[in-house]
Amino acid sequence: MTERSDTPELTNTRAERVAAVRALSGRSARSRAGVFLVEGPQGVREAVRFAAPQVREVFVTPAAAERYDEVLADAAANAVRVRTASPEVVAAMSADAQGLLAVLRAAETALDDVLATSPRLVAVCVNVRDPGNAGTVIRAADAAGADAVVLTGHSVDVHNPKTVRATAGSLFHLPVVVDEDTAGVVARLQRARLTVLAADGSGSHDLDDLLDDAGQGQRPDLAQPTAWMFGNEAWGLTPEDAALADAVVRVPLRGKAESLNLAAAATVCLYASSRAHRS
């Protein structure tokens, strides 16, 4: 077993600390405290491995401590404080904790810091409001080897618990930038020599054609550093936002489906760029 804090087990579901953690499900409480909640073993595992300096505290039930001992071992190795709590207390903090949750300091990432690394693949979510979709795009971007995700416009709070859960830990693997100025973000990406492509069903360029021609010097060239813009779940990109891009690209639909949802389209586009870069 991993050695844990000598602090007595938390058993009072009405304790002030329990209420403070539970309140982090709300954006105003997260904003005031500058912290957010990570629920469940997968998210906590990735947090203590890849973002240990941000982790304020981990709460675990005795049963979960036995089941997820490797997570607590990583926490101990990274000097992360772990508190044992009764199942009732953890359930009062979060209904989705599965016996294990963590409180993390919210860290801001600036777009300039991302651009300083000469990124080759960036996902830009414009007015993406659904936390599950936003989190899944972050997860897909991570899986495709993207260098960053940017949330612009009136996108969902990246620290919304549903968003954090949907990232499945990918939130701690790559930079996630929040910047409401969509036009400014696109202009800065272009100045950094990234080709900005807007994903839209009415696009004049077919994604398969671009992938076939990648690396042959034609424009737009998927083999070059690329930033993909993805729009709102209901209405996609506005004409004004799509016009900011260097080109508008459609994902080919060969069956009878009218469209792809946001997360699926983003995954296809990001992997197309990833494959072109690999070639």
Rank of each mutant, 00 (worst) to 15 (best):
E3R: 13
S5H: 02
T7M: 05
P8H: 09
L10P: 07
R14C: 05
V18K: 06
G26I: 00
S31G: 15
R32F: 10
A33N: 11
V35H: 13
F36H: 14
P41H: 01
P41Y: 04
Q42I: 11
V44D: 00
R49S: 11
R49P: 00
A51Q: 02
P53Q: 04
P53E: 02
V55N: 04
F59V: 02
V60F: 03
P62V: 04
A65F: 08
A65Q: 12
E66M: 08
R67H: 15
A73S: 12
A76K: 14
R83F: 11
R83S: 14
S86W: 06
V89P: 06
A91F: 12
S94G: 10
A95D: 13
A97S: 14
A102L: 01
V103Y: 04
T109F: 07
L111V: 09
D113M: 10
V114A: 12
P119M: 08
V124L: 03
R129A: 14
N133G: 12
A141D: 06
A141F: 07
A148V: 11
T152F: 10
H154D: 13
S155K: 08
S155M: 07
V156C: 13
P161R: 00
R165G: 01
A168H: 09
G169W: 01
G169A: 07
P175W: 01
V176E: 01
G184S: 03
V185Q: 03
L189R: 01
A192R: 08
A192T: 07
T195Y: 03
A198D: 05
S204H: 13
D208S: 12
L211R: 10
G215S: 02
G215Y: 03
Q218D: 12
P225I: 01
T226P: 07
M229N: 11
M229L: 15
F230V: 14
F230W: 04
G231F: 10
E233V: 10
W235E: 15
E240T: 15
D241S: 14
A242C: 00
A245C: 00
D246R: 03
V249K: 02
V251R: 02
V251M: 10
P252V: 09
G255F: 09
K256F: 14
L262V: 13
C269Y: 07
L270Y: 05
S273H: 15
S274G: 13
R275D: 14
A276L: 03
H277P: 04
H277L: 15
